[in-house]
Amino acid sequence: MPPQPLVTARRLRKVYGKPGAREFTAVDGIDFEVRRGEAFGLLGANGAGKSSTMRMIACVSPVSGGDLTILGRDAATDGPAIRARLGVVPQDDTVDTELTVRENLLIYGRYFGLSKVEVRRRAAELLEFARLTEKADESVGALSGGMRRRLTIARALVNSPDIVLLDEPTTGLDPQARHLLWERLFQLKREGVTLLLTTHYMDEAEQLCDRLVVMDSGRIVAEGAPAELISRYTTREVVELRLTDGDRATYGDELRSLVARFEDLADRLLLYTDDGEDVLSRAHATGARPITALVRRSTLEDVFLTLTGRSLVD
């Protein structure tokens, strides 16, 4: 028997509001599986239904339709038992502002029914893991954004969860704080913790995820490993050109004819090709004088653009 997936969603739906007039479908019949030990990503623009999906998996928001099985249990009926084995890192850091850093961990452990001795030991370990030992007895108000996020992650680990859910883990953090956080998440992955995260950053998805689904308007539009998706949905390289309005009008059509796939964005043109240097020299040969020209490899951002016709981060 193949190992059972930790999370299985079948025709999963989330509908907000009263049926009829003000109904809004956030998640519209999605299927996916999360396997033990992998880092699984939900990639999509804001409002694609990622957070709603996460909230259903966290068993904090009821399923509107379809089946959702987590750790072999039904999300609709076994909420508390499932939550006992999850670690949740919400999008906004909802740390307990009335308590100190250490107290945040201590009380969170008590919510899981851990003993006083046990939570004290765990808190010390986790402060070390989150590199917050020096801040242990300070108020959470004294923490930077990156530290707060690390505290939220440490808190989510207090019950030694099977799965850690992270909703937009690095949104709002500066590059240095992001890298430190990624490094901590890698460590968890190495230790065998299953990670399930949402993100609208393609670099984050490429860095962290073994497998991901791309969501758009409540549906899954693609599924696979980052490299797989890139090779399936886009060319190897991309030529990015910024042109003056004049050049754009004059040479736009000619440039378009150079490649099989072409994107006309507000601030730049994207030419998809397997040989970037060749296309670039032919672009110059048309007589267009780009303000900037760049050849780069394709990313998940391009996959997203291909699939949805829109950019990930607006």
């Binding site: 006992a84 084995r85 029914g113 851990l114 370990e125 680990l157 030694s160």
Partner: peptide, 14 residues
């Protein structure tokens, strides 16, 4: 449990 240390009881602090 593939995590940092031992398994917690699956219950609520109430």
């Amino acid at each position: 449990t593939p995590t940092l240390s031992g398994r917690p009881p699956a219950r609520s602090g109430g």
